[in-house]
């Protein structure tokens, strides 16, 4: 699992999340993002184009981060999900509580 900051513009930070978020890597994923959330003030766009795999442990982390941002009046958006990752968001119903876009451009336009 790897998180790379891609760009920051219009009060939105875009990060790429790559690899696998499973029960082993989810705590690290959540800790890294939480640190960023507590330091910044911008919205967060997670580009998941490079994410191969996510399990319920990763969903739990994403839910926690979403709630934290919302409390602060900020938003979390996801974009560019691969089919198998999108399927996990659909089955779990997370697609209905977290905005998901086809591309980073679409996400920034809709925001």
């Amino acid at each position: 699992m790897e998180i790379v900051k891609l760009e920051e513009k219009d009060n939105c930070v875009r990060v790429a999340v790559k690899g696998r978020i499973d029960a082993v890597t989810a705590p690290e994923f959540e800790a890294e993002l939480n640190q960023w959330v507590s330091q910044g003030t911008a919205d967060l766009l997670m580009d998941l184009n490079g994410l191969d795999y996510i399990s319920s442990a990763g969903l739990r982390s994403i839910l926690g981060i979403t709630k934290k941002l919302k409390k602060d009046g900020r938003a979390l958006m996801l974009c560019s999900l691969r089919d198998t990752v999108k399927e996990v968001f659909d089955i779990s119903g997370f697609s209905t509580i977290i905005p998901i876009y086809d591309s980073p451009e679409a996400a920034l336009k809709k925001r």
Binding site: S56, L59, R60, T66, K70, I91, I97
Partner: peptide, 24 residues
């Protein structure tokens, strides 16, 4: 099974893993 239709504030993740396991 978890309530997969709950809104953000009411959303809990207990049982979510087993729910995915059953669905897959």
């Amino acid at each position: 099974d978890p309530d997969v239709g709950a809104g953000l504030e009411d959303r809990h993740t207990g049982g979510l893993g087993v729910f995915l396991m059953k669905k897959l």
